[in-house]
C-alpha cells in the first residue's frame, strides 16, 4: 500500500465519521420537517417520506394555531432586547475595558453575577414583584429582565474587546481634546463592529428562544412569545403531530436564518463561553 492510497483512505474515513455525526445532529430536525409536510389522511410512522407534500399544516399553525400573533410578540421582544442590551453592554465594556476608577472590581463582579447565576434564582420574585408594579404581562416586563440577564455576557464580551483597544489611539484622541463619549463613538466603535455583530447574533437567538422568563412573565395571550406558545401547543394538540411539527418549524425559521447568515460569529461567541439555555 503506497502513501497516496493511505492518505485517500484516511481522508474518506474522516469524512465518514463527520458525516455520521452530522447525520445524528440533523436526524430529529429532518424527522419533524418531514412530519410537518404529511397530509392529514396519512398515518405517520417513523422516518418516512409523505405520499404528497401538504403545506396546509403550516397554514393551520399560522392562523388557527395563532403562531402569527406569537411570532409577532417574539419579534417585538427580540427587536427591543437586542439593541438595548447591545447598547448598554458597549457602554459597560467601554468603562471596564478602558477606564480606572474607584470600586471598579466590585462593580464588575456585580455585572458578572448573571453569567453564572441560573434564571431560577430571580424568576420567583420577578413574577410576584412585577405584578405589583403593573409590569406583569407587558412587553417591558419581559424585555427589561431579559436585558439585565444577558448584560452579564455582553459586559464581559465588550470589555474583552475594549481591553485590546490601542492605548496610544485613545491617548492621542484625548490630546486632541476628545471627550470619552466622542472617543467611544467616533474612534473605538468602528473597530468594534465584529465583536458587536457576534454579540448581537447571540442576543437575537437567546431572546427569540427565551423560554423560562417568557413562560412565567408573559402569560397573557397578547404578549405570549413563540416558544412559550409552542410549549402550550404541545399539551393541547397531543394528537395533531403534523400541526405541532409545522409550528415547531415556524418557530425555528427566524433563528435559523440568523444562524446561517452569522454562523461564524455565533459559533465563536458560544465557544468563548456564551451559553444561555
Amino acid at each position: 500500500m503506497n502513501a497516496v492510497v493511505t492518505r485517500t483512505k484516511a481522508r474518506a474515513g474522516t469524512h465518514a465519521v463527520l458525516l455520521l455525526f452530522s447525520a445524528v445532529a440533523l436526524l430529529p430536525f429532518v424527522s419533524i420537517l418531514l412530519i410537518s409536510l404529511y397530509p392529514h389522511d396519512q398515518a405517520i410512522s417513523g422516518l418516512a417520506l409523505p405520499h404528497s407534500l401538504d403545506f396546509g399544516n403550516y397554514a393551520d399553525a399560522w392562523t388557527t394555531g395563532n403562531f402569527a400573533a406569537l411570532s409577532k410578540s417574539s419579534g417585538i421582544v427580540t427587536a427591543c432586547v437586542v439593541p438595548l442590551t447591545s447598547l448598554v453592554s458597549v457602554l459597560n465594556g467601554y468603562v471596564f475595558g478602558t477606564m480606572n476608577f474607584r470600586f471598579k472590581t466590585p462593580l464588575f463582579y456585580l455585572f458578572l453575577i448573571g453569567l453564572v447565576m441560573p434564571f431560577e434564582a430571580t424568576i420567583i420574585p420577578l413574577y410576584y414583584d412585577l405584578r405589583e408594579f403593573g409590569l406583569a404581562n407587558t412587553y417591558p416586563g419581559l424585555i427589561l429582565p431579559e436585558t439585565a440577564l444577558y448584560l452579564s455576557f455582553g459586559t464581559l464580551w465588550m470589555r474583552a474587546h475594549f481591553l485590546t483597544a490601542q492605548r496610544p489611539v485613545i491617548e492621542a484622541a484625548q490630546m486632541e481634546g476628545a471627550g470619552p463619549w466622542t472617543i467611544l463613538w467616533r474612534i473605538l466603535l468602528p473597530g468594534a463592529r465584529p465583536a458587536i455583530t457576534t454579540m448581537m447574533a447571540l442576543f437575537t437567538v437567546w431572546s427569540w428562544n427565551e423560554f423560562l422568563l417568557a413562560l412565567v412573565l408573559a402569560q397573557a395571550p397578547d404578549v405570549q412569545t413563540a416558544p412559550a406558545g409552542l410549549a402550550s401547543f404541545v399539551g393541547e394538540h397531543t394528537t395533531d403531530t403534523s400541526g405541532l411539527a409545522a409550528a415547531a418549524v415556524i418557530v425555528t425559521i427566524p433563528v435559523l436564518v440568523v444562524y446561517v447568515l452569522l454562523q461564524r460569529s455565533f459559533i465563536q461567541g458560544i465557544a468563548s463561553g456564551g451559553v444561555k439555555g
Binding site: 455525526f21 452530522s22 451559553v275
Partner: peptide, 13 residues
C-alpha cells in the same frame, strides 16, 4: 454549521 445547529434552535423545538 451542522454540528453546532442544536445550539441555535429553541429547546422547546
Amino acid at each position: 454549521v451542522v454540528l453546532f445547529l442544536p445550539q441555535a434552535v429553541s429547546l422547546v423545538v
